[in-house]
């Protein structure tokens, strides 16, 4: 159970060594720098050093409590990243897959809108543009606050071990 912020690239296989030992389900998500316009050379990610790791740890602990996770890991990079490089990863471990999938989805929605990172796109011509927050990200987060959503413990089918 850990949250980390770094500039260096990460190795997903190394990050997952020993992760979630004893769990029935492990889900991982990796975000990659994407160029939607063909104009982007790199992404620069700024963050709030005194706050970031604590905020990520709080969100990890919230997800663990809500979905009954047995392990979780959040890693987010900052600094200048080229198109195609991994930006961040989330891993969740639980007894059953529904909890692991939902917890990873939940964590991503929190990280998108409530973790202190700001992205700036750098064009091939050197021009920089701050990425604006999307209202769809805020909508995605609000669905976790709806009382109708299933919460852990999920009713797990007896004949479905994962």
């Amino acid at each position: 159970m850990s949250a980390r912020v770094q500039t260096a690239p990460f190795d997903l296989a190394a990050e997952l060594a020993g992760f979630g030992a004893g769990a029935g389900a492990v889900v991982t998500f990796t975000g990659i720098v994407r160029d939607d316009t063909g104009q982007m050379a790199a992404l620069e990610i700024e963050h709030y050093p005194a706050m970031t790791e604590r905020a990520l740890s709080d969100y990890g602990a919230q997800a663990a409590a809500r979905f009954g996770l047995t392990d979780w890991r959040i890693l987010h990079r900052h600094g200048r990243l080229a198109v195609g490089e991994p930006i961040m990863m989330v891993a969740t471990a639980a007894r059953h897959r529904a909890a692991a999938f939902q917890a990873a989805d939940y964590l991503m929605d929190w990280l998108k809108s409530r973790a202190p990172f700001w992205k700036r796109e750098i064009g091939h011509d050197g021009a920089a543009r701050w990425v604006e927050a999307k209202s769809s990200d805020e909508d995605a987060l609000s669905r976790w606050q709806a009382s109708s959503l299933p919460k852990y413990p999920f009713p797990a089918p007896a004949d479905d071990p994962a």
Binding site: S113, A115, P116, E132, A133
Partner: peptide
Amino acid sequence: FFPPMTGG
């Protein structure tokens, strides 16, 4: 103070 966050 900062603009809306854009992590992930």
